[in-house]
Amino acid sequence: MTTLSPSTDSLPAVAGDAAPVLEEGHGDYRMFGLATFLLADGMTFAGFFAAYLTFRAVNPLPAGAIYELELILPTINTALLVLSSFTFHRAASELKQERMGRCRWWLLVTASLGFAFLGGQMVEYFSLPFGLTDNLYASTFYALTGFHGLHVCLGALMIMIVWWQARQPGRFTPSEHFGLAAAELYWHFVDVIWLILFGILYLL
């Protein structure tokens, strides 16, 4: 996550996206680092997915256990999250045209969609007929959606930070806006993970 990379603000403007390695230089590899990190994070999810699919293939639901999912709320939630990817993209393109006001507005919309998603998930959690330890599938359901929810939560907070930072004039420029770009990449990643998760958990 972004906090792991050196802080954004202190980079000299020359070493921006466009500046590759100069003789003594040190380009900006933070996006590359973030992408590698997301690869690792994705593998964590992959491990969970594999576990879930294996459970499904070999472990029957114990007699009398309840594991039912309803589809309406999660579908709405999915739509919200997909939408938020587009709104974030919109925010970034507003930034490229130096319309900071609109950029911030779209950031706020994105974050709100993220929080709405989390709210929806809470509602779903409380209305489900099974609890964390009821049976294998219940546990797996909560573990998977919970771990993803944690990511959404972090992402939404990150967006709020970026939104706050964007208040300072000159903090993000069309050519130099690592914080925002990182949050965007991360957000898309979380979105894609959700689509896979939705597919195997609810639809399969």
């Binding site: 593998m43 491990g47 576990a51 546990s139 573990a143």
Partner: peptide, 25 residues
């Protein structure tokens, strides 16, 4: 490291759930 270690991390988190929260993965 990047491809395999996260899987261990996830697995151990599930294992700790089994120990602490009495889930049954």
């Amino acid at each position: 490291v990047v491809l395999a270690t996260p899987v261990l991390a996830g697995t151990l988190v599930l294992l700790s759930f089994d120990i602490l929260a009495h889930t049954g993965f």
